[in-house]
Design a protein around this nucleic acid. Structure first.
Lengths: 204, 204
DNA sequence: AATTATACTGAATATATATACAGTATAATA
DNA sequence: TATTATACTGTATATATATTCAGTATAATT
């Protein structure tokens, strides 16, 4: 990264202050107003110089498309996404399925996990899993009998106890007498294990 | 701050992710692209709803003029202590009672809380509170009927539903048929409300 | 001596963007 | 029952904004 001139430093500082104050970067005109320039091109040339020297990035054709290149804070925690347990379809990490992100420290639960799943229904009530609870899901196919798994059968996603009765027969057991076991014959029906529960969070 | 709807939460999350990714807030069109909307007015109305509810600020007439109102200035927390629910005695924050500290961000559950209590027994089983669960406890005497409270009667601490039947009669109800109600006559017995449960964490 | 980078003013313009207006539809609430 | 909030599509437009072009001037390199 090349040397910055004093005027360029003023512009860079102005951008940082502006973002801190408003939450979004300044326009060329904003910089002019802050620093007393009379032409937007003054800001423009300074911005291009700062970009060339690596202090900022400029998204072309984009209003306020200025980003400060901070190598230190680049690897920041986005947190874990909360995904709704949709009746049909696979819970994917696509933006449109993410309810919000939870700033949860890594290794909060003993082992690592990938996302939170918001529970619908009471089929696991007796396991202490209630409606709207958040299950910490570890994406894995390595599940043992008795594990609480997130399983998908024909596009329907469900949370149940996992029990392999024979190489091709798997039982998905609810923890609620009002629900019945789901017996899956792997030779007839496709079963996909999305992962297993390694923890739970409830907000009330 | 009013309740956020699930769609509004998605929009808010989308904005946060966009800022994290690019360094500047999205346009209405950007939000549409991320979430699959086909009209910029979809984003607009969600933004106005989020503004009305206080989650964001919008600078009028300003491109990308979206600022998130929760600066989430959470400095790295010292963490919350986990306190064992001892059969007798008050759960105090003294060092000798602290099982360990959990590095949990402030405001992790909607409201603030003071410590985690490790649950013993199954008296609140039907409320989804299982043995060894961690209850997030907010120290307060301001409890309403139906709240899950941490109560102390004669040095014995217990977690139960709170129900005031008359000014001097309080029922502490378990959520398990194997246990019976505790009726407390405040004129005869001293009852101290340590606080109430505002959340729960389970590690398995 | 000829570039090249810095540091500006001033005007012009294509387009990126916010935002209003006109609809449709459903669920919740008074 | 009427009303409000939510959740969208679709079109239109004033303006906010990036960006180019044309200059002027000084200092630092090559």
């Amino acid at each position: 990264m090349k040397d910055i001139t004093s005027q360029q430093a003023k512009v860079l500082n102005c951008i940082q202050l502006y973002i801190k104050k408003t939450g979004f970067p300044p326009t060329r005109a904003d910089i002019c107003r802050e620093l007393g320039f009379k032409s937007p091109n003054s800001a423009e040339t300074h911005l291009r110089a700062l970009e060339k020297k690596g202090f900022i990035s400029i998204e072309s054709g984009t209003s306020r498309g200025i980003a400060i290149n901070n190598p230190e804070t680049s690897e920041e925690d986005l947190g874990y996404p909360i995904i709704g347990l949709v009746a049909a379809g696979s819970p994917t990490l696509a933006t449109e399925n993410i309810e919000k992100n939870v700033n949860c420290p890594k290794g909060f639960f003993g082992s690592n996990f990938d996302y939170f799943l918001r529970v619908k229904g009471l089929s696991m009530k007796d396991a202490g899993i209630m409606e709207d609870d958040l299950i910490a899901v570890k994406k894995t196919q390595d599940v043992k009998n008795g594990d609480i798994v997130i399983a998908r059968i024909d596009d329907e996603v469900t949370v149940k106890y996992f029990h392999r009765h024979s190489p091709s027969i798997i039982h998905l057991q609810p923890a609620n007498n009002d629900f019945s076991d789901i017996e899956v014959n792997l030779e007839e029906t496709e079963l996909y294990i999305e992962g297993k529960s390694i923890g739970l969070i409830r907000e009330n």
